[in-house]
Amino acid sequence: MSELVIEKVTKSFADKKVLEDISFTVKEGEFVSLLGPSGSGKSTLFHLIGGMYSPDSGAFYLDGKKINGKRGAISYTPQSSSLFPWRTILDNVVLGAELFAKPNYDQAREMLEKAGLSGYENAYPHQLSGGMRQRVAFVRSLLSPQSFICLDEPFSSLDEFTRLEMQRWLLSIWEENRKSVLFVTHNIEEAIYLSDRIIVLSSNPATTKREFTIPFARPRKEELLLSEEFLQWKKAVYQELR
């Protein structure tokens, strides 16, 4: 059970207002995407949720508890996989859990297997491809004790083919676990394909411009990407972004 409520959050750095009056909610088991141009303050919002700094005004509530400036309340998958080069894959995925309790290696092995990474438990990050490293980073988030996951453009550094494959993979893993996810991206297709809802941000300063509820049923198939309806949605979102 985890629900994130963001209430009228504003943040400036120096004189520049980065976020203005941002409000939205991510419900239990929901997949919500934050869509906006690069540099629109999406990452800043994540850093605020993650407690790296406090907002100037407004508040974050996770399951009703205020988490302003509180670190470790959410589980986080960064843009670059940020794996520890001296740890094996198995030791890497338990890191998030390890910070709070003794990690469960059996569960970690099982999860790696489901993620299509069996056989790599004892490999080191530099031996894996970019897509695989990103998977490891996501498994690490899933194994962390926090039930709310924030993904910060996790596929932005991957090529188009790997990206597609990763989206499919992410959906299949997520549909099994159903942890609440907040996903940051600047890719419209990715946002529509993956999310229950899309929140479009404007830039300079970022405000919540519009919200879309994506009605496609789950589990979602790849064919969906080429359907007429999907393209209609893409058009609608695209127009909003302009």
């Binding site: 993650g50 407690g51 670190r71 470790g72 309340a73 520890f84 001296w86």
Partner: peptide, 29 residues
């Protein structure tokens, strides 16, 4: 120490001691 890894550790809620023992020390080896 890699700023990315440090950032991850902070977001994940690692304490100062954990950051030192699990990240900075092995990184400095």
């Amino acid at each position: 120490t890699s700023p990315e890894l440090l950032h991850y550790m902070q977001m994940a809620g690692a304490s100062k001691r954990q950051i030192f023992a699990k990240l900075q020390f092995p990184h400095a080896l």
